[in-house]
């Protein structure tokens, strides 16, 4: 029988947020959709958002500045500060809400949203398709601290039972 690793040891290395998706398109095309301003604007944003990329400087340290029209919140701006651009495999940027001038602002309609999220995207070839793995972590909080938070939420759910069904579903998805 193999020894089971404690949950805390597993989650201490896991990123706080992970989402994986397979796209039915070759990797170079998927890469273009993530890095060409015109294409990115056609898909990035919450449901119903109309997104426009205002400026883009696609190189490490360069920025992308965009605006989104969201039905219930009006106009919000966002920015990426690129950290790593390794076509067609890996893209890393620091993701924030911004003002019209491109300066970082707190989330306009959410109290406890991290101001800056380090977002890392891996693009892998999967036959004729592309497997995309996106992770996101708050800048300024160490992985151990974030992992502790996740453990805590799981612990509360186990200890109190019920009331955390949403989280349960969420963690199941995140764990995929």
């Amino acid at each position: 029988m193999s020894a089971q690793m404690p949950a805390s040891d597993q989650s201490s290395t896991a990123p706080v947020f992970t989402i994986v998706r397979r796209f039915a398109a070759p990797r170079p095309l998927v890469w273009r959709a993530w890095t060409e301003a015109g294409l990115l604007g056609a898909w990035f944003g919450p449901k119903g958002a109309k997104t426009t990329v205002l400026s883009q400087d696609l190189r490490p340290g360069g920025r992308l500045h965009g605006r989104m029209e969201i039905a219930e919140h009006g106009v919000v701006h966002f920015r990426f500060v690129y950290r790593e651009i390794a076509a067609p495999e890996r893209l890393v940027w620091v993701h924030s809400f911004a003002d019209a001038a491109g300066e970082v602002v707190s989330a306009p309609f959410l109290d406890a949203w991290p101001r800056e999220l380090v977002t890392t995207v891996h693009f892998e070839e999967a036959a004729a398709a592309t497997r995309v793995t996106l992770t996101s972590e708050p800048l300024g909080a160490s992985a151990a601290e974030i992992a502790a938070f996740i453990d805590l939420m799981q612990g509360m759910e186990a200890g109190w039972g019920g009331g955390f069904e949403t989280l349960d579903g969420l963690l199941a998805k995140l764990g995929g």
């Binding site: 796209f23 898909w43 944003g45 919450p46 959410l110 949203w113 991290p114 949403t166 969420l170």
Partner: peptide
């Protein structure tokens, strides 16, 4: 839990359009 759920919704919505 809310911001993690918000982040999840953002990327799922985006990926559907992508």
């Amino acid at each position: 839990e809310q911001w993690l759920a918000g982040l999840h919704a953002l990327w799922v919505d985006s990926f559907d359009r992508l």
